[in-house]
Simulated scan of single mutants.
Amino acid sequence: MRLRLTHANLWVPDQDEALAFYTAKLGMEVREDVTMPEMGGYRWLTIGPPGQPDVSFILNVPRPPVVDDGSGEQLLELVAKGMSGGFHLSTTDCRAAYEELKSVGVEFIEEPEERPYGIDAMFRDPFGHRFRLVQTF
């Protein structure tokens, strides 16, 4: 059996705001944007990094039919506190990527720093998700 990661979920309060951040600022591509009337208007919205068509992030609003309203509010509170786990994005030049992303308004929590495995920096999206920007040696 061979398992491969295809999708990772990102809880967001507003899909349009998330879509603008991930495409305009991070350069992600829209993979799917489908509204399903049979599921109460649920919007399946995925984005992903260029050159990696088999990897997508689901920009999901935590509300019915996905989760109940109370749980959705709790999820968004945890995300806002940075408790959603973390994601790593690789780059060939962390310092240059840092400068480019910072210039378009991406909020960095840590500046690029050399570590035993390479150079990395940490940023967050407008909702609280944390991302490490990593250049390995």
Rank of each mutant, 00 (worst) to 15 (best):
residue 21 F to N: 02
residue 37 P to F: 06
residue 79 V to M: 13
residue 78 L to K: 15
residue 58 I to Q: 12
residue 29 E to P: 03
residue 28 M to G: 00
residue 2 R to I: 12
residue 27 G to K: 03
residue 117 Y to S: 02
residue 125 D to V: 14
residue 89 L to T: 01
residue 12 V to K: 00
residue 55 V to I: 10
residue 60 N to M: 15
residue 106 V to W: 09
residue 53 P to G: 13
residue 77 E to P: 01
residue 102 K to N: 12
residue 126 P to Y: 03
residue 132 R to I: 04
residue 19 L to I: 04
residue 61 V to T: 12
residue 55 V to N: 02
residue 90 S to M: 02
residue 115 R to N: 05
residue 37 P to L: 13
residue 134 V to A: 07
residue 63 R to L: 09
residue 38 E to V: 02
residue 36 M to V: 05
residue 93 D to C: 04
residue 101 L to I: 02
residue 80 A to F: 00
residue 42 Y to W: 15
residue 119 I to S: 03
residue 89 L to N: 00
residue 86 G to W: 04
residue 114 E to W: 00
residue 106 V to Q: 13
residue 34 V to C: 11
residue 91 T to L: 01
residue 119 I to L: 00
residue 37 P to C: 09
residue 44 W to P: 06
residue 55 V to Y: 06
residue 133 L to G: 03
residue 130 R to D: 06
residue 87 F to N: 04
residue 64 P to D: 06
residue 101 L to F: 06
residue 46 T to M: 15
residue 31 R to M: 11
residue 109 I to P: 05
residue 115 R to A: 00
residue 19 L to E: 02
residue 10 L to P: 04
residue 76 L to F: 07
residue 117 Y to E: 03
residue 33 D to V: 12
residue 59 L to R: 00
residue 79 V to F: 11
residue 44 W to H: 15
residue 26 L to M: 11
residue 74 Q to D: 14
residue 97 A to L: 03
residue 125 D to P: 09
residue 78 L to P: 00
residue 19 L to A: 00
residue 60 N to W: 07
residue 64 P to C: 07
residue 4 R to S: 15
residue 44 W to S: 13
residue 73 E to D: 14
residue 119 I to N: 01
residue 68 D to V: 08
residue 22 Y to A: 04
residue 89 L to G: 02
residue 23 T to K: 10
residue 15 Q to C: 03
residue 18 A to T: 02
residue 82 G to I: 09
residue 3 L to W: 12
residue 130 R to S: 10
residue 72 G to T: 10
residue 105 G to I: 07
residue 83 M to V: 03
residue 2 R to A: 11
residue 109 I to Q: 13
residue 81 K to S: 09
residue 103 S to V: 04
residue 99 E to W: 01
residue 39 M to A: 12
residue 125 D to F: 10
residue 83 M to R: 10
residue 36 M to F: 08
residue 58 I to H: 14
residue 83 M to P: 02
residue 24 A to M: 03
residue 45 L to G: 11
residue 80 A to M: 02
residue 127 F to D: 01
residue 63 R to F: 04
residue 4 R to L: 09
residue 43 R to F: 08
residue 129 H to T: 09
residue 61 V to W: 03
residue 64 P to E: 10
residue 31 R to E: 06
residue 68 D to T: 04
residue 90 S to D: 00
residue 135 Q to H: 11
residue 105 G to N: 12
residue 72 G to K: 11
residue 36 M to L: 14
residue 117 Y to R: 04
residue 5 L to I: 12
residue 16 D to S: 08
residue 121 A to C: 05
residue 55 V to W: 01
residue 116 P to G: 02
residue 59 L to Y: 03
residue 45 L to F: 12
residue 129 H to I: 08
residue 113 E to N: 01
residue 109 I to K: 14
residue 84 S to E: 05
residue 118 G to T: 05
residue 112 P to S: 02
residue 71 S to D: 11
residue 125 D to S: 13
residue 84 S to L: 08
residue 60 N to A: 15
residue 11 W to M: 12
residue 115 R to H: 08
